[in-house]
Design a binder for these strands. Sequence first.
DNA 1: ACAATTAGTAACCAATTGTTACCAATGTCA
DNA 2: TGACATTGGTAACAATTGGTTACTAATTGT
Lengths: 221, 221
Amino acid sequence: MRSAPLNSVDLVLCTPHGRQLAVLLVRDASKRARERWSLPWAPLAAKQAPEHTASGVALKASGARASWLEQAGAFTDDKRHPGGAAISVAYVGVTPARARELPDGAEWFPVAKLPLLAPRHRAMIDAAVAQLRERMDRAPVAFRLLAPMFTLSDLQEVYELLLGRRLHKASFRRALQAAFLVAPTDEWRSEGRGRPAQLFRYAPRKRRGARGGVRFELLGG
Amino acid sequence: MRSAPLNSVDLVLCTPHGRQLAVLLVRDASKRARERWSLPWAPLAAKQAPEHTASGVALKASGARASWLEQAGAFTDDKRHPGGAAISVAYVGVTPARARELPDGAEWFPVAKLPLLAPRHRAMIDAAVAQLRERMDRAPVAFRLLAPMFTLSDLQEVYELLLGRRLHKASFRRALQAAFLVAPTDEWRSEGRGRPAQLFRYAPRKRRGARGGVRFELLGG
DNA sequence: ACAATTAGTAACCAATTGTTACCAATGTCA
DNA sequence: TGACATTGGTAACAATTGGTTACTAATTGT
């Protein structure tokens, strides 16, 4: 019987943490001094769809279902995996910020302040965060980072966090209005100071088929 | 000695073919009646970066280097691989349309008229084409589908092919001008009828840092 | 009551994009 | 040779979108 699995499914689970994006890491008891943290992972089961495995890893490591999950690629190069896997299939997931406690040994780390990790896990996190940023205008990533009910300021904060730059309130809301993505609810939330904010939910409606010309967003290279 | 490799690298190589995108398939001699075509692939070598393997597959199957190559994900589900691989890492590549002959047993197929393929290969092609469309505004995919020198009408045709819709000539060129992505050359090409067109080359210059607000391009779901 | 703070919107102006229309250079065909 | 069909290329105007300023609203703290 082998002790090291051949292939693995590794998960980069993200959540908003203050004004930063945070990643879930688990304490890795089997490791020596240096690398005490790692991404949650599981051996790849041949008989199970890898998304299903990733989904299970998310549940076990964070205590809740991931609200969005997508493959982020295969990592097979020389960078070694903590469990000795040959091929590691990485998944990106998101989950709303919660007050609830995490399972033992798991902790959120802001992406800017990660501890020392196995090189393969570093590469996965970089790829996962990049993929989140690219996917946000195709998939409802931003909405899945929030609870089902949210204020427009919450939503704007998530967009700013993912885009890495500030947005103008009026422009943001005008664009959101035009996109028919959210619906107001009857509820309001008071954060202490300031006027209470109305709560919205994600409720995408119609859609005028992909308008606009080309955007040459390409940098050099 | 095992006859079937455990893991594979599979390549979806694309090129413009008339007004359609075409994919390179190779005749699979080892197969029985039904599935006579497959994507070019190779076993995954543990000691070699998988991109390198993919690059070699492109060279062997098409007779030329791929001008752009990127991983398109890992495919591991129940859909079986022609070579019996457990995990298949798919790569998308592009190459300019050429008059030159293909190596024996290889052929371009328009994506709309594919022959019967292994389910895993169908899934890879779908993912690869989708990825091409998504990447084109981040990576110079469109330019790599063209020869080093091209007319602006050629370029527009590639954009239309990838976007799946017609673009306005004047708007397209104005946007292109503003993006500083191409430089004119001294050469001109005459296609027979009509005024000769000036040839351009891809020469990305400066870049004003990511302007603009948010675009909620999100559909339903 | 009033300052401070956060939510939300109107309205103006600048920039971008869609469109129409035109001129230029070539091959075709009477 | 001289329309004219065909493709390349651009100017200029109209419509739309996006950035910004500035305002009003509703709440807490002093």
